[in-house]
């Protein structure tokens, strides 16, 4: 589904990713872990298309298409969706409007018609229930005045409504208490499907107790230095990243 090949990325002349290679297949859940500054967030930002990141070498393909040639919105319409570590507040734009226009943009891009309003509301209602969110959220401006936990739940709500093929979640666990984390993890787990993949970017192993990945990659200094199964995350928890860095060196 997603292939990242020998990716080199610079920000303001500093090379952050230094030859990253990663393959994610449909049905899989991958976790990328690593110390601060290793380039974890850079990877998801580049895949989503954020400005300010210069790809100096390497390729990213999604279902055979060159991601780097696609506009930001085209990536989302194709099914690549990023859940933000720090969701931005958008005063004046209601959640309901964002959800509806985003879903319909995706459907129109796929050549499907817009979803009829009653069907749309039924879908949103169901997903709200899943995220233990009140219907009043729909009337509020996107993330405005939301607590940290509410913002993260709102990111997952968008994922549940938009049903991406590849959901990338950047530090979705940061700032969550344990109850909120369970709700978020339940939401993410409900996304697991044969035809969908999930990429978790996280600093802590804690999240992976709730969302058990198929593969764990350790990212250090811009490269994946080790790949394993969920057990690898537990080793990291016990020994820290220093052990990995040493074993690689």
């Amino acid at each position: 589904m997603l292939q990242v090949n020998d990716l080199h990325v610079s920000v303001e002349g500093n090379e952050i990713l230094k030859g990253l290679t990663l393959t994610i297949n449909a049905g899989e859940v991958h976790a990328i872990m690593g110390p601060n500054g290793a380039g974890k967030s850079t990877l998801s930002a580049v895949i989503a298309g954020k400005d300010g990141y210069e790809v100096t070498q390497g390729t990213i393909t999604f279902e055979g298409k060159d991601v780097l040639e696609m506009e930001i919105e085209e990536r989302a319409q194709a099914g690549l969706l990023l859940g933000f570590q720090y969701p931005v507040e958008i005063p004046g734009v209601k959640n309901i409007y964002l959800l509806k226009s985003a879903l319909n943009a995706q459907r129109v891009a796929r050549g499907e018609g817009e979803m009829p309003a009653p069907e749309f509301m039924k879908l949103v209602k169901e997903k709200l229930g899943y995220m233990k969110m009140d219907a009043s959220f729909l009337q509020r401006a996107v993330n405005e005045g939301f607590s940290g936990g509410e913002k993260k739940r709102n990111e997952i709500l968008q994922m549940l409504v938009l049903q991406p093929k590849l959901a990338m979640l950047d530090e979705i666990d940061s700032g969550l208490d344990i109850d909120a984390m369970k709700v978020v993890a339940d939401g993410v787990n409900s996304l697991r499907a044969e035809d969908r993949a999930i990429l978790l970017v996280t600093h802590y192993q804690r999240l992976l107790d709730y969302i058990v990945p198929d593969q764990v990659h350790v990212l250090v200094d811009g490269r994946i230095v080790k790949t394993g199964d969920a057990e690898l995350a537990k080793q990291l928890e016990a020994n820290g990243y220093e052990g990995i860095e040493e074993s690689v060196a």
Binding site: A48, G49, K50, D51, E71, I72, E73, R75, A76, Q77, L81, L82, F84, P87, V88, E89, I90, V93, L98, S101, A102, A105, Q106, A109, V142, Q158, L162
Partner: peptide, 15 residues
């Protein structure tokens, strides 16, 4: 707010 423009585009909404 260019961050907000970006956030909306990452949801599939054209620029």
């Amino acid at each position: 707010d260019e961050e907000a423009v970006y956030a909306l585009r990452t949801r599939g909404i054209d620029e």
